[in-house]
Design a protein around this nucleic acid. Structure first.
Lengths: 226, 226, 226, 226
DNA sequence: CATGAATGAGGATTCATTCAT
DNA sequence: TATGAATGAATCCTCATTCAT
């Protein structure tokens, strides 16, 4: 879990006041990050100025720079936290069902019904505001998506092993995993970021997941019938 | 095909020299657009300055402003041209096979093997550089994707009618169409923009298309077996 | 002689208006440089802001950046021009007397009575404002002083050859040349920059030169008597 | 010797612990000064931040401000200490030889062979980092150089009286003193700060001193032969 | 005494856009 | 039409200094 930066992590030997100060520091770090998140999501990364962010977080510009190296760092820390959250939501659900097709579906549902609906700003950050901003951000975004793709890949492998089925022929499961991520991403972008159909997102997500599962099943030896 | 902005007069009543001037104008318009495209794709929309673009196109800054209202307009015109190209490539292939599943697959192959491989910079523009730049650009991007989604939707409908099959139950074909676009987009982003695996893109694309078609077939009444 | 930067130096084929524009460009370059010189000399390099400089030169901030890469560049161009002027003044005088001891003395007089008295701001730049500002500036300053030291060295050699005398023993003429520069520099700093004794500078300079010449003569074989 | 600012109480009536605290205070004062000295010399006065200095001295930023009014004060105290050291080195040597020409030479040797070689960072401070920083610093620097010039002046007078000789005519011995300082300064700057020729500094210094002494002798009535 | 988080004024630099020629 | 010099608002970032704990 991403931790605030200025952090001499000796959780022992801390006086009460030191503990409180550390707590305040973490709180302020989160406040700033939250303010930036909202501004990036609503105004856009470039339009949101460091001064606006400081204002929104009710701190001085200098304070923002005390907690974050620069604007880019702010975005990167944000992506890390969001990435962690997103993977938690998906992973938790999947594990709850013990690596089954059902778990795979539930994870998909959770993406739309938990992540997208409850954290639309965060979806805006990962899917829109972090795209093509700088080499470093792009690199980080790649790493995040690689991890997610890896998760999906592992899930697929686990399911197939678990349910005693194998993939047909020479299919690249990695491409499947990337495709699954693509569906999640674009469906969220389209219906959440563009059309703001928060209400319908549940049904939409169910359909998308059905499409994914259908596609996946089709690649399984036994499941296939054509 | 989008036409140059200044003076899209009718081609009648034009003297030879006027014709030549018009030709030159169109050429220059394209030169600038091409220079901007390359710079946006390599440097990024924000890092590429109008002066750099002018330099690359071997014209003055003022000339760029003669052909394009502003930087945003440059990006928008670019998106329009790229959108037109992309839809042409997909549509042409699909029609060639008379609205069949085969045509649907061939269109997918064409996306990866023609569009992505031959125009990687243009892929970078639609999938990366036009994301989250401004309200207007975002709006235009939405329209472009809506059109593409519509194309896919129409294709799916045409195929189902053509091959005498219907979609199972209550499934939203629009969501399917959006998902298909998502797969195209992310697979291109992942393997072309991030990993630059131009060589492998053919095989990767084939797998992605197989996944799509599997998912789609699964949603057809007759095609389903589970 | 340092020339303005933006300069496509084809002095042929230039229309009247082009010539005038070029003239204006060079003039503006000089105006900005002059304004910066005065501000650097009076306020100090760091205290003088780019905005102040622009204001003083009656141009916009952007214009300053059109002619100079950055603040450091402004200082460096300035140093180059001042270095050129200083060496001209010294060299011209020396040559006028045909590489004799008299010429050496006259050059020294010219340093105080022409350079220091007529261009006190420029003296402030070379001797004060360019000291310890940045690695690049320091490098440039070193080069300038190296050239000056070289000039003095050449002068000493020329004089000794010219007047048929040789240096005693193993003395490093380079060290002598550096010392001579040191005298010029500190006397100027002390009496001009610190005490502003413009009136007395003539006499002061004469004494300093007498000291130098005495020291130098003492190093000549024939001239020595101890 | 400059004493620490806070609490320069008399050393009477002090308990043991008070004495220890005072000792610690002086030590800390010196530690900070030393850290700042190194940073100013290596990074430059402006580039070195108060935080860096605090870090290097292993104290908090607040502590630095407890011992020194502000950054400027840090530099000024430093200059005072360095000035004291430099004058000690020169004066001690001169006195050792009882105000003779020999003592004058030895003092010069000591400048190069003791001060410059053993304290190059301090040379960097007086000759480079304290130049043109602020009005106050410049004032202090002037005072320091005035004292040094005064020392040289007194030495010259003492020597002439001591050895029963007088200066020729109307020569300003002050100008000579300033010139001598100029030689010391520039030779140190050139060979130590620019060329880092620590090895050769002994020989270089000897040549410089020879030049000075030659010049000086030439100004004495009896010593002169031309 | 010591700490170090917070402040916020200040400054360099960029760059889209304009417009006289 | 074309040019490119000029504009100046906008923005990121630094850092000396303060002060509550």
């Amino acid at each position: 879990m991403p931790a605030p930066k200025p952090n001499n992590n000796n959780k022992d030997n801390l006086s009460k006041s030191a503990l409180r100060r550390q707590r305040e520091r973490e709180q302020r770090y989160q406040t700033i990050l939250q303010a930036a998140e909202t501004l990036f999501a609503t105004e856009g990364y470039h339009k949101a100025s460091m001064e606006q962010i400081a204002d929104a977080a009710e701190v001085s510009v200098g304070a923002v720079y005390f907690y974050f190296k620069n604007k880019e760092d702010l975005l990167i820390q944000m992506m890390d936290e969001i990435g962690y959250l997103m993977r938690s939501i998906l992973g938790t659900e999947f594990k709850k069902y013990g690596a089954t097709i059902e778990g795979f579906k539930q994870a998909g549902y959770a993406f739309f019904e938990d992540f997208c609906i409850n954290y639309p700003e965060r979806a805006a950050i990962v899917f829109r505001e972090s795209v093509g901003k700088s080499a470093l951000v792009e690199q980080r975004r790649k790493e995040l998506f690689d991890k997610c793709t890896g998760d999906v890949l592992n899930a697929l492998t686990a399911v197939s092993e678990n349910e005693g089925i194998t993939f047909k022929g020479q299919f690249s499961t990695e491409v499947i995993a990337v495709s699954v991520m693509g569906i999640y991403e674009r469906v969220a972008y389209h219906y959440l970021l563009w059309q703001n159909k928060t209400e319908d997102l549940k049904h939409i997500g169910r359909d998308a997941v059905a499409f994914i599962v259908g596609g996946v099943k089709n690649l399984f030896e036994e499941a296939s019938c054509i």
